[in-house]
Design a protein around this nucleic acid. Structure first.
Lengths: 300, 300
DNA sequence: TTCATGGTGGAATGAAATTTTCATATTGAC
DNA sequence: GTCAATATGAAAATTTCATTCCACCATGAA
């Protein structure tokens, strides 16, 4: 039974923005599941506008009835009216442009001058460049490349990670994610001048993942040399087969990063790193327990 | 009676663009009513994506059954699949995860889908997901968002960076790149338990760039609180307006990372970070020397 | 610990929308 | 001009979806 809508403000929002503000205002007073629904509405308004309640419930990890309750808690008569509000806003946004223009909205050529579009136009350039780079990387790495790299890592006792300067974020990501896949991991970061000690821990059953781009950091090169000296395997992530780390590597994964205005990106390397880790997680799982089920997701 | 789909090309289009081309190609061979439907699909794709067949029939001056026949003539099994195609394109333009439920399988039958394409197929999934996420980020951040964020950083005396766990690679990249743009930078990394000391250095003319994703690391939240207490500006890079750091931030840049098999990516955040840094470099350069020319590129 | 209150998940129900079917109309050929 | 074949429109039938209802669980107080 609806309690005759005792809500303080019986006036509904009349726009998606108004709805967003209303959710933000009431969020703290909501129950756990209702908050979950609210978060999904704020984070994925397009989904909430267009999908069915069953799909939404699945994606947001709730129940259809919870979505209906959420809408009613906000004063709507049901989930339908709330969806209609979001959908109308979405249509209004998109029908401003003609169909053909909107379709090519993202493929449109980018002005090559910063002063033309202002500094803000840089986001278009970098996004577009990264998209092209990702397509390229996907083709260059290939399924076999990824699969054999995963096998290489899976067979190792310990994973050692090296990446300096611009490559460091990639190494840092792997240092965060690889242990989650259940593989012992050491990041050779050289903090406290302990790089030599860290390299001494490399054994013959280990693998070193070395990430380096032109021009190749000498610390990374010498770390690879140390790994080779210890008879460890080396997986190189680099931008050239001629790079000093690729030459000594057991396997090399080539990534082509976009270069916009002289700045090279990292998106492709991160994407590849993530594919490696998830592949490793599936592989580990398959060997540990024959049963199915997804490997644990991540959190931050 | 379906004539067992005698259409020459039984392969369906996989995008709104492809559908549009297919309609144009077959238009001349269609009957009057089917042409009428086709014209409506081309002229009002968002209606066709969202409205019910009854409404569409009324608006286009046809019948619901005519729309079903039209879809079948194109090779679809019914009007539903055709609408779904258009709807997904609509979502893809506005959000990252527009592309079918295959991406969103949490615990469902993961084992066999991996073994179907092999672990190597993950590279395709992640690359594709990241591309969609980048398109979305580009649209969500927008030129104004980037421009005002750059202005916020440019006005600061010192930039403080916070990002833990999964967000750390982004902070690490900024710690590498922001100083190259000539802006004093401190990374709050908490190495050696010195986080408190690092936070004490924040002044009222500074800006803190805080990166955090669900679920939000408490260290990051308290760092933001410390920045607020010091009357510093806060630029949040996060995945939700409800995140504890977004609520306290001077400005929030929303990024929606792709989520494939429960693992969220970082490509969009890295792309955004790079756009921020290059924008900052141009801005700094413009104020230091009026002359044009690109800022120095990077190297590793 | 026990009870009471309110929240939550899942199944049943009723409504709405899509698809099929069939009768009628229209077009083209002989 | 008539017949055959196909297209069209209307309505029935089926499927899908939103909502409601009920039983169970969690939380907090006595």
């Amino acid at each position: 039974m609806t309690p005759s809508i005792p809500d303080a403000d019986s006036n509904l929002p009349d726009s998606a923005d108004g709805l967003r503000d209303m959710i933000l205002a009431r969020y703290d007073g909501m129950t756990k599941v209702l908050q979950q629904v609210g978060r999904y509405v704020l984070d994925h308004p397009e989904d909430m506008a267009l999908l069915t309640l069953n799909e939404l419930a699945e994606r947001s990890g709730t129940q259809p009835s919870a979505i209906v309750r959420f809408a009613k808690a906000l004063g709507f008569t049901g989930a339908g009216p709330m969806q209609r509000l979001l959908r109308d806003s979405l249509i209004a946004q998109n029908s401003a442009l003609g169909y053909s223009e909107r379709v090519h909205q993202f493929g449109a050529a980018v002005e090559d001058s910063v002063s033309a579009g202002g500094i803000g136009a840089l986001i278009d350039e970098f996004a577009e460049g990264d998209i092209l780079a990702l397509q390229n990387t996907r083709a260059m790495v290939g399924r076999e490349g990824l699969a054999s790299a995963v096998a290489l890592i899976a067979a190792a006792r310990v994973v050692h990670l090296v990446g300096m300067r611009r490559a460091f974020p990639v190494a840092a990501y792997l240092a965060y994610a690889v242990p989650q896949a259940g593989k012992p991991t050491m990041l050779v970061d050289g903090v406290g001048g302990l790089a030599a000690q860290q390299l001494r821990a490399i054994g013959p059953d280990d693998v070193m993942i070395a990430i380096s781009y032109h021009s190749y950091a000498p610390e990374t090169v010498s770390a690879v040399e140390a790994a080779c000296a210890a008879a460890a395997k080396v997986l190189a992530i680099s931008d050239s087969l001629l790079s000093p780390i690729a030459k000594r590597a057991t396997q090399t994964l080539l990534v082509r990063e976009s270069e916009v205005r002289g700045f090279r990106s990292l998106s492709s390397s991160l994407c590849l790193a993530q594919a490696l880790v998830v592949g490793l997680a599936y592989d580990q799982q398959r060997h540990v327990a024959a049963g199915g089920g997804a490997p644990a997701g991540d959190a931050s």
